[in-house]
Design a protein around this nucleic acid. Structure first.
Lengths: 242, 242
DNA sequence: AAGTGGTCTAGACCACTGA
DNA sequence: CAGTGGTCTAGACCACTTT
């Protein structure tokens, strides 16, 4: 059976957060060299592969740069909200961690049966109850993303209503023990005036779309999320290796 | 499998290719379970972490699906050219490996000094010699991508001319020992009629742009590539983990 | 030469699946 | 229950950078 107590995040992700915080706090300035992987392993009481995995995450996010034989260095970064594509984080958290004031505005929230196409995403039958959400994200009062979410209501405990959800979906799911641990994402470019809404929508309806299904630790699909990031407001980085 | 070759690719990448080939050959059909990680490790003479790393690459590409406790399964795939974003492969190879006939058409090839902005990408000075290339990729006679490349001519051996380059840039660089091992990529959405050219350009000028700098094993930046993938012709997949 | 990151191994222990 | 994948460790050896 599933053990609800043992859903701590993996060590590399925890360590990456601690290192990210130290950099954000100015503990290590841009250009500065971090302690060696060996030293970090000792300091945090983990193995060197775990340190390497944590560092790799921050390299993906564009925060660190590694130079073979020389060391690991803090990069200085440019415009846009930095986001590593490979790390699964809630949109609001990505925005907030960059020092912006993040606000989430809901346009609609509705419990309804899923269409055949929608149900297929959850490997479920048509008519499966889902909570459909439309919302947008603001960073310092500027619209930076729109998001369409479909939450599989079958995995939610009884008595949860669509109106209970506000702000971050991740923060809503976490106390229920339903935090997604993995997402299978597709990347698309979208040019569609029907996506944006509200008075502050961007002039040009051009978006990077992350179409992703979120999975729980037990493999169940918990949500289907289509996030539309306003082009130029985000800086999506990615490390590709041979 | 001890690895006697000096500049061989990492074992996980080699193993991923061998598994990919076996799947392409129909050795394992969609839906079928692969041998366990332990068995694959024995069969190929590598450790289990190496097998896991290889499998992770194929999961990123959408070719495999892993079910905890049950096994690793071959997925059946849909439309578009499948490409895992995290794996660095040449555009022509991605297309060819999906069974399409890949053709590369060059529009221009030119040796010239880099502008200030361009040189910055290479951490070089303005005036740095670069080879600028414009080309497009066809899969089964259909245009699927346009690409602008800038190759740092300072890393090329003397006597190499812009006209020597044809087909895949990777295949041109490999025998020179200048194969990139890593790319730092930015993902953007682009809607611009100035990108496409030629009689077969797509009706709608909407692209997923991979803006990437390629690095050699010694850390030198060797090329700056802006690849514009025609929306809907590619299926870029990505696994995001917590 | 010393110290750094790059790669890979062997193996331990856990959680999950399916018979 | 046996077998599978999920996670993490300890350490070996190599290539590279710096002194």
């Amino acid at each position: 059976m599933t053990n609800p107590l043992r859903d701590a995040r993996p060590l590399p992700a925890q360590l990456a957060d601690r290192l990210r915080d130290r950099i954000a706090d100015g503990d290590w300035e841009p250009g500065h060299r971090l302690p060696s992987e060996q030293e970090l392993a000792l300091e945090y009481g983990v193995s060197r592969p775990t340190v390497r995995s944590a560092v790799a995450r921050l390299v993906d996010s564009g925060i660190l740069r590694v130079r073979h034989g020389a060391g690991t260095f803090v990069t200085s970064h440019h415009g846009g909200i930095q986001a590593g594509l490979q790390e699964l984080r809630s949109t609001s958290r990505i925005i907030a961690e960059q020092g912006y004031n993040c606000e989430v505005v809901y346009r609609s929230r509705e419990l309804r049966p899923a269409s055949a196409e929608e149900a297929e995403r959850f490997a479920g039958l048509p008519g499966l109850p889902v909570i459909a959400i439309e919302r947008c994200f603001l960073a310092d009062d500027e619209v930076v993303a729109f998001e369409h979410d479909l939450i599989n209501a079958a995995v939610l405990p009884d008595g949860v209503a669509a109106e209970d959800i506000s702000g971050s979906v991740f923060e809503f799911m976490e106390p229920l023990g339903l935090l997604p641990v993995q997402a299978l994402a597709h990347v698309r470019a979208v040019y569609d005036a029907a996506i944006g809404w509200g008075p502050r929508r961007p002039e040009q309806p051009l978006y990077v779309c992350l179409d992703q299904v979120h999975y729980l630790a037990d493999g169940r699909a918990v949500s289907w999320s289509q996030a539309f990031f306003v082009e130029d407001k985000f800086e999506f980085t990615l490390v590709r290796t041979r």
